[in-house]
Computed example of a mutant assay.
Amino acid sequence: MTTTQIGALDAHTLTEDVIRSFDDTPDARTRSILTALVRHLHAFVHDIEPTLAEWETAIEFLTAVGQKCDSVRQEFVLLSDVLGVSMLVETINDQHAPGATDSTVLGPFHMTESPTRQLGDTIDEFGSPDELLVTGTVRNTGGSPLPHATVDVWQCNEEGFYDVQQPDVQPAGNGRGLFTTDEQGRFWFRTVTPSHYPIPTDGPVGTLLEATRRHPYRPAHIHFIARADQHRPLTTHIFVPDSPYLDSDAVFAVKRSLIGEFGTGDAEQAAQFGVKIGSPVAAVDLVLAPPRSGSADVH
């Protein structure tokens, strides 16, 4: 490890000294990431020239973000979301998956395991009479169906709350389900139409939004993670058409391609899926890309 001669250090040579300290890092990718991190972070500090009090405030803020994380709440994911970093990562990775369904943010509430359910089951534990039927397919970019793919689903309820936000009201697993596609790559389940909702504002991310006069709302949506052997996992949403905040999502996650196709069920669908004629129906097509060369994201 390179050492710096005492007395020779200044604000400009410090960056290069820190970068040189990573010269013996065995893994090239780790070394590259740390080098870029230090270079950009130091450039940011040079740009804003924070006072010591501002630096201490930043450390306190990040400490508070970490302290707000627990087994069902991920405040760092939420911070990444509201700063647009999560969507930037998703968008960059989408460039390597031409023809696949657009991805979008994981969100802070995928912190609990979805219960395994059978095709056609409801994920609404309350038995609401206002059912939404979701039908979908999982296929590859060549158009072939992917049988035995898993589809992990989670959403908020009609009032805009996830089960983990209301442990005394909603049973664990409400609004969640893990499904396996049939031989034709199809899946279907029943649920309720989710509501738009505010992201949690009772932590430091909420303080940040308040300080910047930003609203905390997300348009109504259903989350999906689809996985199949020898394909890249897909994390995405379908958004409810005409939902408020489609044009101003607090986490920048709306893509036009992900605004869902919602209609009303006909007699054939009612007979096939056991829903009422005229009940809302959403169609979902999840297209998975092959793995990137050398990627560990293969199952």
Rank of each mutant, 00 (worst) to 15 (best):
G143S: 02
V85W: 05
T25L: 10
T101C: 11
L88N: 15
V89M: 14
D81F: 00
N140Q: 04
P147H: 05
T30L: 15
S32Y: 12
T150G: 05
G107D: 04
A100W: 00
A28I: 07
T135I: 10
H46E: 05
V82I: 05
A28F: 07
S86A: 11
E54P: 06
V65W: 01
Q118N: 14
P145G: 06
V45L: 15
T137G: 13
S32H: 15
T116M: 11
D47I: 04
T57E: 13
S128Q: 03
N93I: 09
P145E: 08
E90W: 01
T57A: 15
T25D: 12
S71R: 00
D94A: 12
P26A: 07
P98Y: 05
V82Q: 06
E90Q: 12
F22G: 03
T135V: 15
P26Y: 06
D94G: 03
V45A: 14
T116L: 07
N93T: 10
T104Y: 05
T104M: 06
D47H: 15
Q118K: 11
E125Y: 08
I123K: 00
E75N: 07
W55N: 08
G127D: 06
V151M: 01
V72Q: 00
A100E: 11
T112C: 08
L78Q: 08
T35M: 03
F44A: 12
H148P: 02
V151Y: 02
L41Q: 04
T63Q: 06
E49H: 10
S128V: 08
D152I: 01
A58G: 03
R29S: 14
R139Q: 13
H46T: 04
H40P: 11
M111Q: 08
T57I: 06
T122A: 10
A36G: 13
E125V: 09
A43I: 04
A97Y: 05
P26L: 08
L62K: 06
D27R: 13
L83I: 14
G136C: 11
I59N: 11
H110K: 09
L132Q: 00
A36H: 13
V85M: 04
W55R: 08
I48P: 14
F61R: 03
T137N: 09
G136H: 02
M111F: 03
Q67Y: 07
S71I: 03
A53M: 13
